[in-house]
């Protein structure tokens, strides 16, 4: 145990050293990560769209912003209208936005109307058994956003949302669409 007590602080210090970038934070800098699975999810009843969302139809063809949200999540209520404004700005250039509701069976019927109240027009789908959420958002953070570029690669993941991020997110989406 004495040895472990020495190892853990050392490991954490090393972890912090590896994690910290050398310079100032670079929030808009893109990372290249994995690929999302070609999931299919049903539209939320009473939501802005009625057809299922098929990720396979968009992978490798156009940029997609995947938003994990829930009716009980207050920051999500601020994130969805902002992405709606970006969707209106860039939809002609191919941007797709899909909001995946993490609501359980207790609140799932409220997901569609909630999105309508937020004046959202992009796809709003449900994932009651959380199977897609488990794959793409294993920490089950809400809100949680994933950007997928035209090549089908995940280039950005972000937990949380605040209106203070709007400039950085808008700049990032512009780069994603133009990429």
């Amino acid at each position: 145990m004495r040895r472990l007590r020495l190892v853990i602080p050392a490991a954490l210090a090393l972890a912090a050293a590896l994690a910290l970038p050398a310079g100032a934070p670079a929030p808009a800098e893109a990372r290249v990560g994995g690929r999302p699975p070609p999931f299919v999810l049903p539209a939320a009843a009473g939501g802005p769209t009625s057809a299922p969302f098929r990720m396979g139809d968009h992978l490798g063809q156009r940029p997609v912003a995947i938003l994990f949200w829930a009716t009980w999540c207050q920051p999500c209520q601020q994130e969805l209208p902002f992405y709606e404004s970006l969707y209106q700005r860039y939809r002609e250039q191919g941007l797709r936005v899909v909001a995946i509701s993490m609501d359980s069976q207790a609140t799932i019927m409220r997901a569609g109307p909630n999105a309508r109240r937020l004046n959202v027009t992009f796809d709003v789908v449900t994932d009651v058994d959380t199977r897609v959420t488990t794959q793409l958002n294993p920490r089950r953070a809400a809100p949680f956003s994933i950007w997928v570029d035209r090549a089908g690669r995940i280039v950005r993941e972000q937990e949380g949302f605040s209106p203070a991020e709007q400039n950085a997110v808008a700049q990032g989406i512009a780069e994603l669409v133009g990429r």
Partner: peptide, 15 residues
């Protein structure tokens, strides 16, 4: 433990 934590931390710098 050391290997796991270092592996985890390296995720932050992956480009």
């Amino acid at each position: 433990l050391l290997a796991l934590v270092v592996l985890g931390a390296s995720a932050a710098r992956a480009q």
